[in-house]
């Protein structure tokens, strides 16, 4: 009842999963970071969406001086990293 048969593993998603685990280990407990997930990101001029690591950061990350805030890499194991605002509250 909770889902259908499992599809063959997708190499791109497997690579993203491993990169996600690495980035979570690095930034998952940083107070600037609220969530890290994997999403599609469409780059300007690109014909299709690409898989990216998405780091959701709190307002304090934007407000802090670059040297004082979480260092977010531009990619992890060739998987691009994008930053999005995410000041999530329990609802």
């Amino acid at each position: 009842m909770t889902g259908g048969p499992k599809a063959d593993p997708d190499p791109e998603l497997e690579a993203a999963q491993q990169a996600l685990a690495k980035l979570e280990a690095e930034l998952g407990y940083d107070p600037d970071v609220s969530l890290i997930d994997v999403a599609f990101q469409r780059e300007p001029g690109s014909p299709s969406g690409s898989v990216v690591l998405r780091v959701h950061v709190r307002d304090r990350w934007f407000a802090a001086k670059p040297e004082a805030r979480a260092k977010i890499p531009s990619e992890v194991d060739s998987v691009p990293v994008v930053v999005t605002r995410g000041e999530y509250e329990l609802e």
């Binding site: 998603l13 993203a16 979570e24 997930d37 999403a39 998405r54 959701h56 999530y88």
Partner: peptide, 8 residues
């Protein structure tokens, strides 16, 4: 999301 994340 394509793959889920976790948060504190």
């Amino acid at each position: 999301s394509i793959l889920p994340g976790r948060m504190i």
